[in-house]
Write a protein that binds this DNA or RNA. Structure first.
Lengths: 338, 338
DNA sequence: ACGATTACTGTAAACGGTTACAGTCTCTCC
DNA sequence: GGAGAGACTGTAACCGTTTACAGTAATCGT
């Protein structure tokens, strides 16, 4: 079958220990011997069996990533950040996505433990307790955008509340009194926090939140499209729409165009996430910028740290700041391409 | 440390073989014994060590995926397809992305072999020979959108040529004589095939391809934006623009809007890929539809088949068909949301 | 009544690496 | 010249599973 370290050792006339030492640079080996072993191993196309190595070393060199349903540009960016950070730390990435209900998540956790050194879990809609119950406590884990902060795991989230509050505050500050929001899915922590930020901003501005202006949505373009059609049917439609994320905003703008409502003159629109495409839309979308790539990279870096410290470190809870990116769609100034 | 199968066996008063049989349902075990073992294993929070299992079984249960730089919605969709198919077949996914040059790819291949049962490689810009040289020939592999077809690996690609030809033919059929193309990156097989389709369609329509109308691009919005600015400076600008992909088309439309050129009345625009967002753009983007999700899923299914047949199967070469999706941006009919 | 099957269980040998430990040889320093 | 250190190498135990093989007891068919 496949070439093993023993065969390489025999062919090179040394012991397996020496071969191992050469290949891992883990001990002194005479120059000539080292060269010979390298040459022989190359000629024989020797490939170390990683399972054997993991078993012996008690580490897999692999970190797991659990994601909800992949959707749109957002996840490309997250994965990219995760992957780059993992590569820098010389870890592999085991990916599992499309986990939306509790049962899926549990199954995925079960399947992953035992084959990774640590885990990044992004589950904006699942209780931390479910995770804890399905993971050995010795396994390092970083939670991305989870509902509760917890003393068991490191957490990393986006300042959803602050970002939403700032954007809605911006709209209110420019004279809008009837500001609608297209909400995200329920239950979902990000969505809830953005809603809370929206309401708080209204109250800040002396506006009473109006349930009729909180339209349902689920982060998809389609949901933004449908929400806007409903909002336009109101007796007193809004003059501004804050969408729970950019995808939703895009769907919303599509519906407005179809209805002949021009943006931003007849309706201001703003989104959240600032996905790369936003600046290229017509009109360019105002949004709340989150460095999505950073989100992934930082989570992974934190996980690597946790693995190195064998999970004995102080738990860290980080919140990534957001910044307002004002472009054309909210109508408060001329067009840059920010 | 961690609980092993031996400790479970001892606690349950049986041998390790019996425990293994219960947990894998791989042999007859008395009902009562089975229940007891399950209970004890659960109570002890036993988690099988996957490395040991892989070593013993000589299979990892993991399939590798090698991708170029992740970008935009396209890769979310591919990964989603890959992941779903892998999950259905009960395989795990080891992901590695951002491999753009030969050196990166080689390193990634080296790192992956030995820890996966098979590999999906998407590298539209790397020679198949490089891959073959870095993989044991016994390792099943499926190539996605690679330049050459090859007798060594299964391949799967999109009908880039046919799709581009059809779209440009459509534009020409509606009277456009000066049709520009914003090209994809070089070298890149997808990009080259789309360019070839563009040129062929022009010739089909009796139009002589004009090098001045072939603007450089690299699949990003930014490159579409810049390309259009250059095209608009031509003495005789085009009346239609075929972008190498949707992201490029989005950048192009952004530049047109800025220049005050209205789409589609003053300039027709079409893209390629039909990413989900396209139908929601303003105006809705005409594009060449590829089922991106399918691309990933099929590749993974083919890989699973290859693994099951231990790579002794007949090599399969598939080409995914494309369909034209005509919306508003190319100006040949009224607006549906297709 | 007895051989053949069947159901269940245990022992121990793989799987292919890493590494503690011990051993040999050479060199340095008094 | 001998002790001690350092460089190099080999032996063999260990990591935690799976599974071939063998063994026992019960059941079945004739």
């Amino acid at each position: 079958m496949r070439v093993t370290i023993r065969e390489v050792a025999r062919a090179a006339g040394v012991s397996v220990a020496t071969v191992s030492r050469v290949l891992n640079e883990s001990g002194p080996v005479a120059g000539e011997t080292r060269d010979r072993i390298r040459r022989v191993a190359g000629e024989m196309r020797y490939i170390p069996n990683d399972a054997a190595r993991s078993l012996s070393m008690r580490r897999t060199g692999t970190l797991g990533v659990l994601l909800p349903d992949l959707y749109g540009e957002f996840f490309s960016e997250v994965i990219r950040g995760l992957d780059q950070a993992a590569q820098r730390a010389r870890f592999h990435l085991l990916l599992s996505s499309s986990h939306n209900n509790r049962h899926d998540i549990e199954a995925a956790l079960q399947a992953m433990r035992g084959r990774v050194d640590g885990l990044v879990v992004m589950s904006p809609h699942i209780d931390v307790a479910v995770l804890a119950a399905n993971l050995p406590e010795s396994l390092p884990a970083v939670m991305l955008n989870t509902p509760q902060s917890t003393s068991e795991f490191d957490t990393l989230s986006v300042d959803n509340f602050g970002g939403a509050r700032a954007m809605v505050g911006h709209l209110a500050g420019h004279g809008h009194q009837r500001i609608a929001m297209v909400r995200g899915p329920q239950p979902n922590h990000d969505a809830e926090e953005r809603l809370r930020g929206y309401r708080t901003a209204l109250v800040d501005a002396g506006i009473t939140p109006d349930a009729a202006l909180e339209a349902e949505g689920d982060f998809t373009e389609e949901s933004g499209y449908r929400a806007v059609r409903r909002l336009l049917e109101l007796r007193r439609p809004p003059t501004a729409i804050f969408a729970a994320n950019d995808s939703t905003a895009i769907g919303a703008m599509s519906a407005l165009r179809e209805a002949g409502v021009s943006v931003p003159s007849a309706m201001a629109v703003a989104g959240f996430d600032d996905i790369p495409i936003s600046r290229y839309l017509t009109p360019a979308l105002s949004s709340v910028r989150v460095s999505i790539n950073d989100l992934g990279a930082r989570a992974m870096e934190q996980l690597v740290r946790a693995v190195e410290e064998q999970n004995r470190h102080e738990r860290v809870h980080q919140t990534l700041p957001t910044t307002l990116v004002i472009r054309d769609s909210c109508g408060v100034h001329g067009g840059d391409r920010g």
